[in-house]
Design a protein around this nucleic acid. Structure first.
Lengths: 234, 234
DNA sequence: TAGATTGTTAATCGATTAACAATC
DNA sequence: TAGATTGTTAATCGATTAACAATC
């Protein structure tokens, strides 16, 4: 956390993965790891790992490597997992319900505090211990509770409409599952779009290319590893 | 489809989004669009759009722009949406059920042909018109039906185990929702990982950084647009 | 100490942007 | 024709990899 240069989004997107692997090592009782060993496990490169961590400060020790529990903690704190951002979820359909049941918000820096829907048949029902509220009560709720973030599991049109309302209520983080690009709208809000349809089409595109023997360059994430010659050789 | 150089994954990941915007234009009765106009709509740059499309051939017309329905079709065909890849889904828990109900496979190049689970309480139940099968029958099913792709909505451990079995049965496309990185394993299979936890942590990280006034560079996707001086000026 | 491995700078590579000739 | 806008090459920028001195 010492450096103050801008962190690139490419680096940020790799952090959760580092965190995941380090937690696994920690749970397996591993106390120490070198960038080389971690890189092999993750299918990335030692250089990239050191460079990435370097953005936030020196967490390792020359000649030793990285202390696994310590590095896991540091990453958790860089990720901000010790926050308890208040989050609300809009849209208790199939996807919304699955997210409520499936995602562990509290170990990822959030507390899910309320769920809203507009369907009278759904309002009042329980999901994972939470009662679904009427979306009509949304603004009052926001005024009183000041949620930090919103999870949008709504159809495109409602999502656009609701996002504006939420933004006006002070919500500055959006986890958006609806089929439109929220990221473009609000300069000072943080948006993470999860476009399942786009993801499925990407898979289709790659399978199609593979079927037709078209070339797609190996993904970012898979290192274009180029074995360097050992120093002493011709 | 004329060029034969490798397409980069950065380009491929933008294609579904182009497709989405073009479909919207088409549905709004727009017949013609310039790279400039599309770029403004998408929050990207005209240069990038032309460069991206250029990978696959010349779809536009100088002085006119792009024919919207034609370009949408071309993109659909590059994405391979006219395929009917046979897909099966493993894990009919909250997330699996939501995906079955929520995702329109058929308009994205896939046909969902079967659902498997290991829970006797779930086997035999109906989800969106499909009967959940016993995972014990998986290999026989694959031998008979030769599915092309699998959607993994399983816990980490089962996912690892099942992926190996599926790969041996000839499955070469994976849409992986489980909390581990499938992409690293099989060289000749295509994998699309959807890591909801990682996505949520990324959101947390950015909200945390924003809270603490740390700098994160604007995302790829938001253009670092640098207004160029008009030619004639000093 | 000698060996190992980081932190950090320099070199390379790839992706994005700019520019403009071609041409509709 | 004149204006518009693409296709395409060149320039810039950013991200990844390589290398090595610092140091545990």
């Amino acid at each position: 956390m010492s450096k103050s240069r801008k962190i690139s989004m490419s680096v940020v997107r790799r952090l959760p993965r580092y965190y995941r692997f380090l937690l696994e090592l920690k749970n397996n009782g591993v106390y120490r790891v070198s960038s080389q060993a971690l890189a092999e496990k993750m299918g990335s490169s030692a250089s990239q790992i050191r460079q990435d961590l370097h953005c936030f400060g020196g967490f390792g020790q020359q000649g030793y490597g990285y202390d696994v529990p310590k590095l896991a903690d540091e990453l958790g704190s860089i990720l901000g997992l010790d926050n308890h951002f208040k989050a609300i979820l809009l849209g208790a359909g199939n996807l919304g319900r699955a997210i409520i049941n499936h995602v562990d918000f509290s170990s990822r820096g959030f507390t899910l505090t309320a769920v809203f829907d507009c369907d009278p048949g759904v309002i009042g029902t329980q999901i994972n211990g939470m009662t679904v509220r009427d979306v009509g009560a949304l603004e009052d709720y926001c005024t009183a509770e000041k949620p930090d973030a919103a999870v949008l599991c709504l159809p495109k049109e409602s999502a656009e409409e609701m996002a504006d309302i939420l933004y006006d209520c002070g919500v500055r983080g959006f986890w958006n599952f609806s089929h439109y690009d929220l990221s473009m709208k609000y300069g000072d809000a943080v948006t993470e779009n999860v476009h399942l349809n786009d993801s499925l089409m990407t898979l289709c595109c790659c399978m199609n290319a593979s079927k037709e023997n078209n070339q797609i360059a190996s993904k970012p994430g898979k290192p274009r590893r180029k074995l360097s010659k050992p120093k002493g050789e011709a």
